[in-house]
Design a protein around this nucleic acid. Structure first.
Length: 404
DNA sequence: AGTCCACAGGAAGGGCAGGCGA
DNA sequence: TCGCCTGCCCTTCCTGTGGACT
C-alpha cells in the first residue's frame, strides 16, 4: 500500500461526520454515570457502612457478592469516591485481583498495594516480609483511614490462599495513627465456604448482595446511556430491548448489554451503514464470543496449544482420554522441535484449558480399565475453525487440521 | 472381597532468569 | 561480583481413587 493511501484513510476518518456514535465512552465499563439506576438499596447500605470513616472511626470490613455485571464495582467505586470527598483523612485503594500479575503471588499483591500507596517495589528480588514492612510503614505515614477495595478477591484465595487476607485483616493491631478496612468483591457466592473461619468472620463483618438485573432494569440502564452515546435516530426500534433481553438471559449482566450495543454500533460503522438493526445485536453477540476466545488462544504458550492441537485432532463424537492426548501430543511436540513434557505437566495444561472454557473435562472411572479424564472440545463450528487457523499459524496443525 | 488399571493430583524440589543490597 | 530472594515452568515421587474384573 502506498503511503498516500494511508493518508487518505486517516483523513477520511478525521473528516467524515460521525454517523453512529456521539460518545462511545458511555458504553464502556470505564464510564461511571452520575445516577446509578436500580441500585439504591445497595448504595444506601454501603454508604451507611462506610460513613463512620468521616468521623475518623474504623469501618467494618465488608463483603460484596453478585454475579458479573450487576454493578458491584460501579457502586463501590462511586460510594467510596464520594466518601473520599467528605474528608481529607480518608483514602481508598482499588485493586483488581483478576488482572494478570497482580494477585497470582503474595509478593505481587503486596507490591501492587505498595504502588497504590505511592511507594515502589521491584518486580522481583525483595524478601516478601520486606514488602509487608514497606506497606505497613506507608500506611502509617499516611495517617489516614484507608479503605482497600479488593475486586474479584476470590482470585487471591485461589492463587495464594487466605494467609494474605488474614495478615491484612490483622494489620490494624500494628498501626497507631492509621486504620485499614477491607471491601472484598466477588462473583462467587460460595467462595467464602472454604475460608479459614477467622478470615471469614472478620472479612464479612458486613455483607451486601447484588441481585442480577432483570430485562426491564437492563433496558432502563441502556436507555440512560444510549441517548448520549448514539446519534439521534440511529438505533432501530427494538434494538435496546433485544440487547437487554439477551443480557438478561446471561444472568442479568449489564456490562454484556452495553458491550452488545457498542459492538453492534461498531459493526454498522465499519460497514458504512446508518442504522443499528436487531440483526446487528445478534452479530455483535457472536463477535463478542469469538473475540474473547481467539484472544485467549493467541496468548497461550506453545505447549498449551500443542495439547489443544492433540485434543482437536482426536476429538469426534466421543470424549477423548488423557492417555490418547498424551501420545498424540508427544508426536506433535517431537516433530515440531518442542521439548516433550511429562504426563503430570500435560495433566495440568489440560486443566488450564478447561478453566479457560476451551475444553470441558471430567474425571471418569472405567473400572478395570482405570481412571482418566474425558475431554470434549467446547467450541462451536465457527470458533473451532478459527482455532484451527491459529494452530496452523503456530505450525501445530496443517491445513487439513491434521498434525502430520 | 480383593485386585488392578490408568490415571488424578498433592508435595517437594530443581534450574533458570531477574532483581536487590552489601 | 556474590549471596540471597522471588517467580515460573517443569520433573520426580508418591498416594489416592472408582469401578470392572476375578
Amino acid at each position: 500500500m502506498k503511503q498516500t493511501d494511508l493518508k487518505n484513510i486517516f483523513s477520511h476518518y478525521r473528516e467524515r461526520a460521525p454517523t453512529i456514535f456521539k460518545n462511545k465512552e458511555l458504553l464502556t465499563e470505564r464510564f461511571s454515570p452520575g445516577n446509578i439506576l436500580h441500585r439504591d438499596p445497595q448504595i444506601n447500605q454501603l454508604a451507611r457502612i462506610v460513613a463512620p470513616a468521616v468521623g475518623g472511626e474504623k469501618i467494618s470490613n465488608t463483603f460484596i457478592f453478585g454475579t458479573v455485571g450487576t454493578g458491584k464495582t460501579l457502586v463501590t467505586r462511586h460510594v467510596t469516591a464520594e466518601l473520599e470527598k467528605e474528608s481529607p483523612a480518608i483514602k481508598t485503594l482499588y485493586i483488581n485481583c483478576k488482572m494478570k500479575r497482580v494477585s497470582d503471588t503474595e509478593y505481587r499483591l503486596l507490591a501492587e498495594l505498595v504502588r497504590a500507596l505511592g511507594g515502589s517495589v521491584p518486580a522481583t528480588g525483595l524478601p516478601t516480609d520486606q514488602v509487608y514492612t514497606r506497606f505497613f510503614s506507608l500506611l502509617e505515614q499516611q495517617k489516614k483511614t484507608t479503605v482497600l477495595i479488593l475486586d474479584e478477591v476470590d482470585n487471591i484465595i485461589k492463587n495464594i490462599g487466605d494467609d494474605v487476607l488474614y495478615s491484612l485483616l490483622r494489620v490494624n493491631q500494628d498501626l497507631h495513627d492509621a486504620h485499614l478496612s477491607l471491601i472484598g468483591i466477588s462473583n462467587d457466592v460460595q467462595f467464602t465456604d472454604g475460608l479459614d473461619p477467622r478470615v471469614k468472620s472478620s472479612l464479612s463483618e458486613e455483607e451486601i448482595i447484588f441481585p442480577p438485573y432483570n430485562a426491564t432494569q437492563l433496558q432502563d440502564i441502556l436507555l440512560q446511556r444510549t441517548a448520549e452515546a448514539f446519534q439521534e435516530g440511529v438505533l432501530d426500534r427494538g434494538v435496546v430491548a433485544k440487547a437487554a433481553a439477551l443480557a438478561a438471559q446471561e444472568h442479568g449482566d449489564a456490562r454484556k448489554a452495553l458491550d452488545l450495543l457498542r459492538v453492534a454500533g461498531e459493526v454498522v460503522e465499519r460497514q458504512g451503514g446508518q442504522k443499528v438493526l436487531i440483526d446487528h445485536i445478534d452479530s455483535a453477540s457472536q463477535k463478542l464470543d469469538t473475540d474473547r476466545t481467539t484472544e485467549v488462544l493467541r496468548t497461550q504458550p506453545k505447549q498449551s496449544l500443542a495439547v489443544l492441537a492433540s485434543i482437536i485432532t482426536l476429538s469426534g463424537d466421543h470424549g477423548v482420554q488423557t492417555g490418547d492426548v498424551l501420545s498424540v501430543y508427544e508426536k506433535i511436540a517431537a516433530s515440531r522441535g518442542l521439548k516433550v513434557l511429562t504426563q503430570r505437566r500435560i495433566s495440568d495444561l489440560i486443566n488450564e484449558l478447561d478453566m479457560l472454557g476451551i475444553i470441558s473435562s471430567r474425571v471418569v472411572s472405567k473400572g478395570r480399565y482405570g481412571r482418566t479424564r474425558e475431554i470434549r472440545v467446547m467450541l462451536d463450528p465457527a470458533l473451532l475453525d478459527k482455532t484451527r487457523k491459529i494452530l496452523e499459524e503456530n505450525y501445530l496443525l496443517d491445513r487439513l487440521g491434521r498434525f502430520s
